[in-house]
Each structure stands twice: as C-alpha cells, then as structure tokens.
Nucleic acid binder design. Structure first.
Lengths: 218, 218
DNA sequence: TCCATTAGTGTCTCACAGACACTAATATAG
DNA sequence: CTATATTAGTGTCTGTGAGACACTAATGGA
C-alpha cells in the first residue's frame, strides 16, 4: 500500500481566494490540474512529508500547515492502492512562489472556477474549503493570509473572500477591537485615498484569550 | 508502507465516559492495553476497514463513526513503518458487546484513569477526547451515547460526563426545548422517585436547523 | 478647489447565556 | 398510613454580544 501527502494551498489575490494547482506532466490524468503532493518517504513523518512537498512546490517554509483528512477509497488512483493524507496550507499574498523547475506548471486558480481536476482532488479541495471557513470563525487563521502589516480593510476583505459574503465594517472593527489582538503601528498605508492605519497581529494576546475559552466571533 | 485503522470507541457507563481497550496478546507491547484496530485490506476503503474492525471487536454495526486524524511518526510502531488512520466511534450504553473470541480481553476503562497504553494510543485518545468535547457543542453526537428513549436527566448526565463539569438543569432544558429536536413520548421512566418523561431524538428537525446554520449551544 | 474615494466611528435593539429556588410526584422507612 | 427522602420539573432577571444602520475625515486627482 502506498501513501502520499497532498496539500491544498490557499492564498488571496486581489480579494479572491485561490488554490495552487499543478498541471500533471505524467500519467495518469496527464494535462489535468492536481493539488501538489507526493509519496511519503520511508523515513519521514507525515507532517515532514507535507512540509517537504510544500517547500518543493512553492519554495516557502514557515507557513500555516495543518492536516486535513485522509482519503482512501479503493479506486481513487488508477495506478493502484494509494491512500493520501491531505493537508491544507495558507500563505500570504506577498510571498511570491519561486519560479521553479517543479513549479513551471503551477498556477493559482480561483476556488470558484476550477476545471475538472485529477484524482479525487475536487473533493479534497471542497473539504479544505469547509475546514477553512469553519476555522475562520474560531481561530486566527485569517491572519496567515496577510503580510505582517495590514490594514483593517485588508483583513476584512480576507474574511469576505473566504466566507463569500459581505461583512459590516463597523461590527467587524468593533469585534476586533474588543479582542485586543491587533497592535496598531505608527504607520499608514498611503496610495489609495485616505491613508489607512497599519496593524500587526499580536499573537501572544490571542493565546491568552484562547486559554480562557474566548473564541473568534466571525 | 503499512496502513492500519485504529478506533477510539467511547461509551458512557453510570455517568462515566469510558473507552474500549483490548489487551495485546502478541508483541509488540504484549500485555499492554491498546485501542482496537488492524491493517487496512488491499481492497477496502478506509471507512470500510474501520467499520469492519468495529464490528469484529464489538459486534455492533450501526454506530456513529467518524475519521479523526492520521498518525504517522516514524518510530510509532517498532515493527516498522506503519501509518494509522484513527477513527472515533460512539456507542450507546444499552448495547452489550458480544463476548467474542477477539473481545475476550476487551475492557471498558474510564478515560480519566487509563494505564500506560501501547504505541502512541494515549495521544490518539487525547485527540479523540478533544474532538468529542468540541463536537458536543455544535452537533448532536451526545445522543449517540444514549438509547433511543431517554430522559432529560440522562441526556444532561452525558453532557456532564464528557465536559467534566456540572450544567444547570433549567438552562439545559430551556435550550433543548428551544431547539425543538426532542420528541416527548407518552411514556415515563419509573423506578427512581418521581417518574421522568421519556424523549426521543427528532433527527429530521435537527437537519433543518443545521441547514439554517443554527448550532448546538452547549 | 472641488469631487470622488476610501478610512474611520457609535447607538439601539434583540436574542441568548448564565445565575438562581421552589413545587410535584413518587418510593421507602417507620 | 404517614412522614421523609429523592428525583423531576418549571420561570425570571440580568448582562453580554450580534447585527442593522449613516455619517464625518482625510486624502488624491481632475
């Protein structure tokens, strides 16, 4: 029995949630898009395998990565019995992928408009999306999709892109300020119209809140 | 690479949350308790393998069963590289296990007082417990641990056993009655002092609520 | 300097969570 | 048979947080 890891890698580009897909160059499913992944080596843990694949495909290392679910239907890979442990990862829009040999055929596609995918990867992405939407409501994963410094509007756009609905600006900001997990910086983002205050995520404060059982209310 | 499924099976006995464990008769970890499990066959899906193991170990079939997490550290099985897909199952207290050949050494142990377990099974149980506590708050898994007909006090005791804290009787009942997912039966449980009304779970109503995004508030 | 655009701010209402104490129905002991 | 112990069952009040809602502030560009 063979075991692979496959990784659903999300990012947000211009307010649209996208997944990283690679075009397959070898059978089966030649020419189809698939999520990046590969076989687990004999001497590496599952998480390590996922990290390795992520690094190989994107060149990035310190990203949010979490195991999603294992898919093991009998016919899911025409080559034989292959079980895959799916992961999902979030990377911020400001990190360009390295234009690598492997990644030559890698593309970011909007989750709303995916073509027919290889294997059962459509199902895996659906599952990842569901998990992402749920986690958004009680964790801080949303911040993983932003650069270190961001404006409140940018943060709100991340939530709106993932949840696929508009949020009220005043309510959104009120909730965030009650949580006290953002640190305002003495800097502003200029270039639009009125300059917007930049913030960074204060992870330490969040840890304390979570220990008290206070969750993230979106 | 070998793949197993392991199943954390919970039940509640006299108000105490228990896990089904089997004493190992063969190396490694002879004599230690482990959660039931076994190798995934070449021609069966993961879920099927879990169902089969569950049936073999307990003799019960239609129970709540859900994939938990996959554990694949390199050294977790001294026999070699074995990845396990862990499941968790809930069975109601009124279903006796068959006293089977396999189950000769099977025992229900309270989750609070477990001995040292084989493999990484302590970690797996911890993870299952966490999942169970979380799911209790937004799903109806609690009902899976009760027989078809039950009293409100019995239901509350299930919640208290899993969450390890006392709940207020009036608040508990008010919330349940607002959800309208219980159907009162024209029967009473006698034998204690004042007879208690019996209820059954009205699954159809719950589905509607969940579709509307209304969650389970405990 | 006027206008278009994006940033930023407060109140009110409603629903739900949690704290809290007594009455009702039966079983059992004397 | 009566008293007592035990478990079942019920309502109110208060505080917190979610969601609906509209205007002013600061800048860039025409």
């Amino acid at each position: 029995m063979q075991v692979t890891v496959d990784i659903v890698i999300f990012t947000i580009q211009s307010g649209v949630l996208k997944v990283l897909l690679v075009k397959r160059g070898a059978p089966p499913f030649v020419g189809r898009f698939a999520i990046p992944g590969g076989f687990v080596h004999e001497d590496e843990a599952l998480d390590q395998a996922a990290l390795r694949e992520l690094r190989e495909e994107t060149g990035v290392a310190d990203v949010y990565l979490e195991q999603l679910y294992s898919f093991g239907d009998v016919g899911r890979d025409p080559r034989g019995r292959v079980i895959t442990v799916a992961y999902f990862a979030l990377i911020s829009a400001d990190r360009p992928l390295r234009a690598d040999t492997d990644a030559a055929e890698a593309k970011w596609l909007a989750v709303g408009q995916l073509p027919t995918l290889a294997f059962d990867h459509a199902k895996i992405i659906d599952y990842a999306l569901e998990r992402l939407r749920n986690k958004l409501e009680y964790t801080t994963v949303g911040f993983q999709l932003l650069p270190e410094k961001f404006t409140l509007t940018e943060l709100q756009e991340v939530y709106e892109a993932i949840l696929e609905r508009k949020l009220d600006k005043r309510n959104f900001r009120r909730k965030l300020s009650l949580l006290r997990i953002l640190k305002p910086l003495p800097e502003y983002r200029r270039g639009g119209q009125r300059p917007a205050q930049l913030y960074r995520f204060a992870a330490a404060r969040f840890e304390k809140l979570r220990d008290k059982g206070i969750l993230f209310p979106f």
